[in-house]
Design a protein around this nucleic acid. Structure first.
Lengths: 171, 171
DNA sequence: CCCGATTTATAGCAATGGCTATAAACAGTC
DNA sequence: GACTGTTTATAGCCATTGCTATAAATCGGG
């Protein structure tokens, strides 16, 4: 919870006696309503890195048996110290557990978040494929989109993918 | 261009003689390939704020006749000094023009970016509606998604929306 | 023409997420 | 058991994007 009272002087779109012309604002604009979406997007931006990390860590443990900083760094395309700092934050948040010079492990909470992210990621990627975009594009776009998809939209995607027959998401 | 040589020791998933078990990595993982998506997402995160601002400024000018900091702040759900600082950056980037204590205006470049963002935003929102999610959710999710949609995916969305009959995006 | 209210500008703080450079720990080899 | 090469840890540094608090400018009425 970062900002709170931001909606102070807020609204009243067409200010009293200012140089705005014809009363302005027909209807399409409603400050607080729009702010909702932006707030949601900002929030998503805040947590998406955590999600990316735990998801990747889960993948690494599953496939290579362990999650090392160098591997995480290579896959995220960032430097190792960046990963180290991030892991410290994730540890503070109780998502991972790291023993110095040994590996990184997911806590129960981390496991949950990782699984949820992975799930969502797969749904989005499969959906994009079903929609007709190339596998390459689906993979890249889904990386950014997955964090901004609400449960409702996710459901719609799931339904569409299933209906699209290909059974890509299947299972 | 921020990072460059990040792919130093990079790859070779299963390190020489480490405690990883059976050579590891069956195939699904390819460090550099995954990094692509993350890099793209990070880049999108960098510019999406600019896009939000110019898009909103364009909307305000069009509907209320002018774009004032208080209105921008209210609609984005942030404090006014945050907007002031951001506008300075946008001015540096040549996207807006601000005369102190008067309003904010879009430069030609800003106009272009605003229009493109607005377009994309509308396509995504209409697409989500066509997909079957509620208007409310479509509005909120599209705010976050629009920045992560490549041209290819955008085309696919456009096609789907049109095909879906409703002619929502049509215009 | 001055007063109060609104709006904009500015200063300073904090958290986040990148980076490089370097030191410390570890693993494997000889 | 010491050497070499990875890997992790740590210490700066910088840019970004939020915030509060406060000062300066502008606007609308009296």
């Amino acid at each position: 919870m970062t900002q709170r009272s931001t909606t102070r002087s807020t609204t009243r779109s067409a200010t009293p006696g200012r140089r705005a012309g014809p009363e302005a604002a027909p209807t399409p604009l409603r400050p607080e309503t729009r702010a909702e979406g932006f707030r949601q997007a900002r929030h998503a931006r805040r947590i998406e890195l955590s999600e990316d990390y735990v998801e990747l860590i889960g993948d690494l443990i599953r496939t290579v048996g362990e999650a090392r900083q160098v591997d995480i760094a290579a896959r995220l395309g960032v430097a190792q110290p960046t990963v180290a700092k991030m892991l410290k934050r994730l540890a503070d948040e109780g998502l991972v557990l790291q023993r110095p010079y040994r590996g990184v492990f997911l806590t129960a909470a981390g496991e949950v978040l990782a699984e949820r992210s992975r799930q969502r990621h797969r749904v989005v990627e499969a959906f994009l494929c079903a929609l007709g975009v190339s596998a390459e594009t689906a993979r890249r776009d889904s990386e950014g989109i997955e964090h901004h998809v609400s449960d409702e939209t996710l459901d719609a995607m799931r339904r569409f993918t299933a209906r699209a027959g290909k059974a890509s998401d299947g299972r």
